[in-house]
Design a protein around this nucleic acid. Structure first.
Lengths: 349, 349
DNA sequence: ATTAGCACTCAAACCCTCTGAGTGCCAAAT
DNA sequence: ATTTGGCACTCAGAGGGTTTGAGTGCTAAT
């Protein structure tokens, strides 16, 4: 069945109209809004066929049709064409991104706000996955007796640090000794290959008593393990209340209840990004029932990847009602992603 | 008019009942639920009087009465008595706080979740105000050519840092020279008294060219200025949708729309905390119209202070419908505050 | 394969009535 | 002076019936 098949044009028209109006689309309305060179009765036949194929459905007998999940899927896979953002929309986004501080955290948080505002839906920005990146430098810095700062430099110039407690009587020199040994032995190691044992065997030939050494190494280890923590910025939940799709209180409750578990959402996005087959600049789209998270049956996820250097990447995307303008949203995400990539390059020099 | 005045008892009963049932309280219901030794007609007279005093009001002619903002105010100021949390509630909170990592950020974020879950409303936790605290140490650390880490140790052992860009050809020795001078001259200075000029005059007698020096100092300055940034954790917005008070979509939209500007909310709390007259362990309560933020007319704020060391403090509190169990919520906040104070002491050793 | 025509369906809007909790007020009782 | 019983009045909300109209499927003709 080709794209020019009239039935497919009808599906496309139904999706477009339904996205615009949020009302089930009937054969008559379809004829009026799109210039099909056939009568409404013919369209009714086509629609009956589309329904048999499982691409559209009726909310009730005497209503028009709405796309089913599979209908939306067909639409995004084969029918939709992505168009450019208007110059003014691009300028708006550019301006706001440019206003961000030269700092990854601030940039990502703001990017999330920008995206949720632009789309009128919920935006999702995740900090880069660092588990696979390597430790280039590690320094232990005495802050005051009993307290040290672990500074880690990872691939692509990402810096993480954490304050840890150390034995009170440890001297700066002793700390430096440990720091240097650890750094030497861990240098270049991927974060997720570093274990407590790697660490324990990294310091040899020292006068520092084992018990003290072990405490410091343990604290260092927790710092390393925490370095790859994934943060997630979910913004614009309140936007969803404005959408007619969630005007029923129950739906809205469900939705926001699920979205409040941002860690769960992030974990899920992480999962599906792993399954992704295309390159980094492709899109993961999950529609309705395809989303394996309770409470998001009426939503769609669209996510993609931004890059920090060559190897490190994070995710950015949108969660909205499945009745959304997929093409528009994708171009919005795409432009924000582009701006983030650019700005990160600038920050990291 | 004393507390034992029957009219005040009636007000108290009305608030209690209305908080419990979310239904306007009539004279008959009042007689049934509370053993007033008078007839309903008498209570009607009292209620008419309370209405004249502006403490209660009628949603419409043929309904019972609900407390007005001033009625709630009278209630919290004079009538309410705070009771202890049950042992199981205390244990629940204790357990969850104990599970937090030994790290301020994690603690505060989790405290916010815990509080919102316990109260079923929106919790608000703000990171400590650092503007008034002093800079005890400042170090510039070379990370790689062109990139340095500014590490600041503030009063009460709070550590902040930031990655900054520096000229590519600056050597670690030069950086250390600058770092040492700056530290010497800023040592002990309150953060908010440090200006770019203070910094510029802190480094003397150096071979480093002015233009390079100035760039480093400027970056250091921005790091210092960012150190006192106030973060805010607002959690549990979705809880509000479950409350009958916000079952009208319009109200819910308004509320969540306003709460999405967390910076604005934080700023407002900051304001009102400044006006506070009592000690740190007292409560700021703002009811309905008393809140100068659009969209929160049907809410109340309850906030108080937690401490980091002797001088530094942050805020913790709850935003809920003004029809809330004030006494219960206050004891919940109080216990969470107590646990935070304890845990912070432990973290900072 | 397409179309005109027609009987049928059903959610949503509309209107009307009824119900009952609650009120204010008055005159009698304490 | 305060309290009480009694009574007429109010009005939001629930319940029920009707109407409307967009939309459908099917059939017979083109």
């Amino acid at each position: 069945m080709g794209l020019n098949d009239r039935k497919m044009q009808v599906l496309q028209a139904i999706v477009d109209d339904y996205v615009n109006t949020n009302e089930p689309v009937g054969s008559k309305a379809l004829i009026e809004r799109h210039k099909f060179p056939v009568s409404s009765a013919t369209l009714r036949n086509d629609m009956a066929e589309l329904e048999r194929m499982g691409l559209i459905e009726k909310p009730h007998t005497s209503a028009g049709r709405i796309p089913s999940d599979r209908g939306y899927r067909e639409y995004v896979d084969s029918l939709m064409k992505i168009d450019q953002l208007s110059a003014s929309e691009r300028d708006e986004i550019s301006r706001k991104i440019d206003e961000c501080l030269d700092e990854a955290g601030d940039l990502l948080k703001n990017a999330s706000s920008i995206l949720s505002e632009a789309t009128g839906m919920v935006s999702l920005v995740m900090t880069p996955r660092l588990a696979g990146s390597s430790l280039l430098q590690l320094k232990l810095l005495m802050i005051e007796p009993g307290k040290a700062l672990v500074v880690m430099v990872l691939s692509a110039g990402v810096v993480k640090d954490k304050v840890v407690r150390i034995p009170n009587f440890l001297t700066p020199d002793q700390l430096k000794e440990i720091s240097d040994s650890v750094e030497k032995s861990l240098n270049g190691k991927p974060l997720d290959e570093i274990t407590l044992i790697t660490l324990a065997t990294s310091v040899k030939e020292t006068q520092i008593p084992d018990s003290i050494l072990n405490q410091v190494l343990y604290e260092t280890y927790t710092a390393i393990k925490q370095a790859d923590r994934l943060d997630v910025f979910l913004e614009g939940e309140h936007n969803m209340l404005k959408l007619p799709d969630f005007s029923e209180l129950r739906r809205a409750q469900n939705l926001l209840g699920t979205l409040s578990h941002d860690g769960m959402v992030a974990g899920y996005v992480n999962e599906i990004e792993k399954e992704k087959t295309g390159g980094d600049d492709t899109y993961m789209i999950r529609i309705g029932q395809e989303i394996a998270l309770e409470g998001l049956e009426d939503c769609s996820f669209i996510t993609t990847t931004y890059k920090v250097g060559d190897t490190i990447s994070g995710n950015i995307g949108v969660i909205g009602p499945k009745r959304m303008d997929y093409s528009k949203v994708i171009s919005q995400i795409d432009f924000v992603r582009y701006k983030i990539n650019e700005k990160i390059k600038k920050i990291n020099g």
